[in-house]
């Protein structure tokens, strides 16, 4: 009998207003465009702006069976609170991508990989702080190899439709993320 392999699990977490849910659903949309099965669950509550927000994206070649998971293979943490809360949820050998513009670098766990990137700063350098998440997705694309920048471009066009300027800005941001190398990495 042929058993399905485990799903891949992603979490995006941060504060309300940081675009956590939109980047999570965008990630799910990218996988869907690639013909994969996806589920997208947002943190389930009456969160106000500024409150903690997180969402879970699961992706698989087959039907997704585990809809809610405790742990994730990849986590994007956009602020300090979410980094502190979610670092324990990274699977062993999993990776956490951290917005070091807002989070103190602290490698408390030895069994996981860290990518500290000043997402907010990089975004401001591009002229729009709102594209910080797109930079994170660019990094994710590079390290997972699970989705191509081409798919990301297509998805951006589908979602943003006629907003050419915004599409261009986001694509620049992915490229920035994709090309980003941490200090100390080669």
């Amino acid at each position: 009998m042929n058993f399905k392999k485990e799903d891949e699990n992603y979490i995006v977490c941060g504060a309300g207003g940081q675009g956590v849910l939109s980047s999570g659903s965008f990630l799910a949309y990218i996988f869907m465009l690639d013909g994969k099965h996806v589920t997208f669950c947002s943190s389930y509550g009456a969160e106000m702006r500024g409150g903690a927000v997180n969402c879970e994206v699961n992706c698989s070649d087959d039907e997704i069976l585990n809809l809610q998971n405790d742990k994730a293979d990849y986590i994007i943490a956009l602020n300090q609170t979410s980094f502190d809360k979610f670092i324990s949820k990274v699977k062993p050998n999993g990776t956490i991508i951290v917005n070091s513009s807002m989070v103190q670098e602290n490698r408390v766990r030895q069994d996981i990989n860290y990518i500290f990137a000043p997402l907010s700063e990089l975004a401001m350098n591009l002229g729009n702080i709102k594209v910080a998440n797109s930079i994170a997705l660019g990094i994710l694309s590079k390290i997972t190899g699970n989705f191509s920048i081409e798919t990301v471009k297509q998805a951006t066009q589908n979602v943003l439709k006629n907003k050419q300027e915004l599409i261009q800005k986001n694509i620049e941001a992915y490229q920035t993320g994709f090309n980003y190398t941490q200090k100390g990495d080669n």
Partner: peptide
């Protein structure tokens, strides 16, 4: 299920 109402899938 409340989970399903709030969850997105293709």
């Amino acid at each position: 299920d409340g989970l399903l109402g709030q969850m997105a899938e293709g």
